[in-house]
Write a protein that binds this DNA or RNA. Structure first.
Lengths: 345, 345
DNA sequence: CAGTTTTCCGGCAACGTTAACGTAAACGTT
DNA sequence: AACGTTTACGTTAACGTTGCCGGAAAACTG
């Protein structure tokens, strides 16, 4: 139980006017003269008045809180998206409340079901990797809570979504590998069923098709999104008795990093013997040796736009759902360069 | 303006009892019979009742929101601390609200001053790098808002604080460098005046002193905490006409990474010629080549304990301030190994 | 100058919940 | 049988704010 704060009643009493007038004056609305408004503002500043969001929220049926549901924040992409969201939210006087699912669908459902409806004005969501069902989000929307998806979107739900151009990004990545002369290109990707995974895979297929390379299901591995997953995938691809690929397209940089590390352990010369390209442009991709070729993702921009869209949904009921796709850029680095000579350390 | 939610009034009306009884039944308190409690619970489930936090917050003078003020979240340490905080908060039914200062003292002051007091039950804070004054935090505390500092603490403020053992960690790092035979050890550190910076510097001094190495102010550089700062510091240390150091103790891994990259650009063999040790045990320190020796920080644990302490302050007024120091561990890797041979890529 | 409009302000109810208090019925006690 | 106790509920007043309505005073109209 906190100390009592200054309220508009205190201001009203101090100036011997009514609370209604104070309220209007503070919100700069109709029906209040210049002088009284000035007096109220001065007194509010003097008493260090802070509005009580619980009270305003109660009467206006709104808090100024936006929820963010995200698998984790300990990687470059997610933390940058959140930074973008936070920036827009702060500029517009909204708080962001963070919920972490740890990529567990059960945790996600629990969190969403427990979202006390009234304590949130809107929701930004990135679905967990192994989600098989998104009806809990649909329920929120039916309840009248605006929801905007980013990155890992729930394709079956009709609402605004913001993502990078997974299809064309993947296409560019694989096209780049092909243009470097790699022929047998593996794809280590995320869980099946995820829209993001599907789209990057389609780009991969399309590039192979365009350049007349045969599609080989053996070199496509579905697993999680972590560095460890990347390492394990490569160990599998390069296991004994396998027909080894000469290039790897990883669904993201973390898996690409894992791939490079695993290849180095296998004494494979990355770039020269086996090309690797990732997706994200995580700063770490410039630090690893050899540096990792990748496709940049506008993470900050995605967060920013997602939040802006959510605010539009909040401010205007029945704001039509928009689907925004931001394009990235291919960034060739050493991991797809055959000319250089990298020594295994 | 959201759709109206089910309230306890609806439940009361449906069962033809009073709202007070419903309220008591839902909170499992005194003065309600087993049968009516059961009826209320069933009806609440049937109607999908969700409590309105604005209303409870208003009457109890509390929300279930904890604020986190932090310079940024796009690095391993901070995002991991937040993950720890989030976990504890979620388990205890608290939300966390994120505020980012971007290491700008002005932004920090603005954010703290605008924290609508009534919308927060407590505050976790990590002060910005160039803060010269922490009176805005003191004001919050005087206002009755519990505040707990973590990592970068404001030493002059009397409240609970959680941090790693900067002094002994730094001592261990420098002692390790000395034991590896490095003699002229530079220290690239954070801004002056920060408690964390001071403590790590004291550990550095102490190790030099213990092993009879002379202290040379020329090889101590104060700057920011980023990788770029680390690179710039090394360029300065290894500039023309300088008496070059043969080892670098970086205040954190990001600067250590920057140092390694800069040294590689200068064609200096890291480890063999110049040893580098960082602080944090960021995963990236195992990915860079050569891998970076470091002192681990229990980031998740720090977040967890900070949040637990804050909850204690919230639940019990005048809970005595505690100062928790967690010890890390020296992790020697290639960047301080003279035997190995690293080729510059 | 009477009548009409505008300006400015106060009173009151409401938002959903809880705490304090009141009370009727049932139960125990001697 | 008369009294206190306990149990289980209802009534009411807050919490801080805003929206609606009404009304007095001031300003404008012809």
């Amino acid at each position: 139980m906190r100390r009592r704060y200054i309220t508009i009643k205190d201001i009203a009493k101090a100036l011997d006017i009514s609370v209604a007038t104070v309220s209007r004056a503070l919100r700069d609305k109709y029906d209040v003269s210049f002088e009284t408004r000035q007096k109220v503002l001065d007194m509010a500043a003097e008493l260090n008045y802070k509005p009580n969001f619980n009270a305003t929220g109660l009467v206006q049926r709104s808090t100024h809180n936006l929820g963010i549901i995200i698998p984790s924040i300990t990687n470059y992409y997610f933390s940058t998206v959140i930074t973008g969201i936070q920036r827009v939210a702060q500029e517009n006087g909204f708080n962001i409340i963070l919920y972490l699912t740890n990529d567990s669908p059960e945790a996600e459902v629990t969190i969403v079901k427990n979202l006390a409806g009234s304590s949130l004005d809107g929701l930004l969501a990135c679905v967990s990797a192994h989600a098989n069902n998104c009806s809990h989000f649909q329920e929120m929307i039916d309840d009248g809570l605006p929801v905007v998806f980013f990155d890992r979107v729930a394709s079956e739900i009709q609402t605004s979504k913001v993502m990078q151009d997974d299809y064309n990004g993947a296409f560019a990545a694989v096209e780049h590998l092909i243009s470097c002369g790699y022929k047998r290109i593996a794809h280590i990707t995320g869980p099946k069923g995820l829209f993001l995974t599907e789209n990057r895979m389609k780009g991969y297929y399309k590039a192979l098709e365009k350049y007349g390379l045969s599609l080989n299901e053996d070199v496509i591995i579905h697993s999680g999104f972590s560095q460890q997953d990347g390492e394990a995938d490569v160990r599998q691809l390069f296991g004994a008795g396998k027909d080894r690929p000469d290039a790897i397209f990883a669904v993201n940089d973390r898996k690409g990093i894992g791939a490079i590390l695993a290849l180095k352990k296998l004494s494979v010369q990355v770039g020269k013997e086996v090309g690797v390209v990732g997706f994200t442009n995580d700063p770490i991709s410039q630090i690893i040796s050899p540096t990792l070729s990748t496709v940049s993702e506008p993470a900050y921009e995605i967060g920013k736009i997602a939040c802006e869209l959510l605010l539009k949904h909040i401010r205007k009921t029945n704001f039509p759902a928009e689907q925004v796709t931001l394009s990235g850029e291919l960034i060739p680095r050493e991991s797809t360069s055959r000319s250089q000579n990298f020594i295994i350390s």
